[in-house]
Amino acid sequence: MMPRRRARKWLRLGRRIASHAVLIVAVVFALFPVYFIVITSFSKIPIAAITAQVLVPKVSQLTLGSYQQALSGQYPAFTSLLENSLIFAGSAAAIGMGLAAFTGFALSKFNFPGRRSLVYFILIISLFPSFLLIIPYYFMFAKLGLIDTYPGLIIPYSAGAVVFAGILVKNYMDSIPDDIEEAALMDGLSRTGAFFRVLLPLCYPVLGLAAFLAFVGPYTDYALAHVFITSSAKETLALNLYNIATTDTGASNYGVVTAFAIVMSLPIVVFYMAFQRYIIGGLTLGAVRG
């Protein structure tokens, strides 16, 4: 009796050690590049830490100079870049999320002919690389006079976001029993009212996730922005990052590039932390059994 129980205890411990070992390796694998970027950004030597083969820099070699240069030594000004990026990504997140909520509601809770095929159609569309659309988008938006305007980028960003997020919301709403919506109808609401007062609040977790994904995509987008934005007044952080990295002389100041990248990533980190509860809830698609 006893030895068997003890053996089981050891087995459990062994399993736990093994799984932690795997996780640690994965974390190191994921974080190592980030670590290099961080130490490069603080380094006095303007070459990448990886090429300098420095693993642990000495304190005397550290400086904030790269950050200073990244934030103030750029044209256009960093604040203007940040503002543009936030306008594009924020609008895309807000519009994309709003449309995704309605899309998910329609696809999940309404019975209309061709619903299933529509879901598959949307899924298939989301499999195509978005780069394919850049050229046709350009011609279309040029005709509409939307090149180098805010709507010109917000529209395709939102459209791109709503495809995936709509499916995400639909799947989540599928997990909400119809009874709950019907209870709201019996309680005196119209379908629209039931959507806004009952279903939508229940979908906050997945909408948080959808908003996050809809934000990060445009915020880090280079390809579409590069084609659509022609004036420096509308330049975004991601565009500028590339401009810093590729100087005319061909020699990049890695310290400035990495510092810029780190500052640029801060809004995403803040966004994630603010909505972490929702985003993780959305990822696990928690059942809402009352």
Partner: peptide, 18 residues
């Protein structure tokens, strides 16, 4: 419509708003 019938319903699943 259901909301205009002034009927209350108790569902098998209770359908409470979670």
């Amino acid at each position: 419509e259901p909301r205009d019938r002034n009927i209350a319903m108790v569902f098998q699943s209770y359908a409470l708003y979670p």
